[in-house]
């Protein structure tokens, strides 16, 4: 990693994006002290990550990319063991288990009998059970079914409202878009963007499709419109920035149907990544 300067605000959900091998997990492992930086420093919750490592770890919940547990233990034993190492009561365990549909019978089974999804749920529970102030998660929805993913996202929302800070890495951009306040995008260990999700999306062009009664008009002079394609009575184009000039123009035209697809983080990501390649 080079010149990586990230600042995560309290009580925000921060998305850390990049494809496989970009350095997301390496960054997280450096933050947690598993890897030593050759230069630079990490401060977590206002404390130095090396000098105050143990104090920081009292307030952190961590979910690794592929959480592994003692396979001969039951889920319950694994959670109890990790809670005892944290030194605090697992006061949030019941709630998180319920929301992730991890029932008591499942917790009494050996971890070796768990599916990948159930192991992932157990990983999320161990990261949150001691009610940490900062949650660091590496690909948290990996292996979760869509229903549980939805519950998990709602859980993250509740945590943010309670003032917890959440740092999550992911390559599933739709989930990041849904839950994150800000995102950072890295490529080959270098930061290429860090912005509010809403700002990032506002800068991106959106796909617009228009159907007219009769021949379509020429829209090339409308501010923000580009890449116009006309097929029969349908016009497809891309719109950047403010939508009002287009709407003002359309008010005088025989429009039968209008579709403006929202800007997607995926488009922004591909655009930034494509731009940084060149």
């Amino acid at each position: 990693m080079r010149d990586l300067d990230l600042r995560v605000q309290p009580a925000e959900v921060f998305g850390f994006l990049g494809p496989n091998g970009a350095g997301k997990s390496t960054t997280i492992r450096t933050m947690l002290g598993f890897l030593r930086p050759s230069a630079g420093r990490v401060r977590i919750l206002g404390m130095d990550s090396t000098r105050d490592h143990l104090e920081i770890m009292r307030h952190v919940g961590y979910l690794p990319g592929d959480p592994a547990f003692d396979v001969i233990a039951t889920g319950q034993q694994a959670l109890d063991f990790l809670a005892s190492l944290s030194g605090g009561e697992p006061r949030r365990r019941a709630e998180v288990c319920e929301r992730l549909q991890l029932d008591e019978a499942t917790l009494q089974r050996k971890v070796r009998d768990y599916s990948k999804g159930t192991r992932q749920k157990l990983g999320i529970v161990q990261a949150l059970q001691h009610d940490p102030r900062l949650v660091i998660m590496d690909e948290p929805t990996e292996g979760l079914d869509p229903l549980v993913q939805h519950s998990f996202m709602a859980l993250l929302g509740d945590l943010r409202r309670e003032g917890k800070t959440i740092f999550l890495s992911s390559h599933i951009l739709s989930e990041v878009e849904r839950v994150c306040d800000r995102v950072a995008i890295i490529r080959k260990g270098t930061l290429i963007a860090m912005e509010d999700v809403s700002t990032l999306l506002a800068k991106r062009s959106r796909r617009v499709e228009l159907r007219f009664d009769g021949d379509p008009p020429d829209l090339s002079d409308v501010a923000g419109i580009s890449t116009i394609e006309v097929v029969g009575d349908t016009v497809s184009c891309r719109l950047s920035g403010d939508v009002r000039p287009l709407l003002q123009r359309l008010a005088t035209l025989p429009v039968r149907d209008l579709t403006i697809e929202p800007a997607r983080l995926e488009d922004a990501f591909l655009e930034l990544y494509g731009g940084s390649e060149t």
Binding site: R29, L32, V60, P64, A68, L85
Partner: peptide, 12 residues
């Protein structure tokens, strides 16, 4: 991979 869950606790 079980070590990293342990060391993500306040354990030196």
């Amino acid at each position: 991979g079980t070590l990293e869950l342990m060391l993500a606790r306040p354990i030196a």
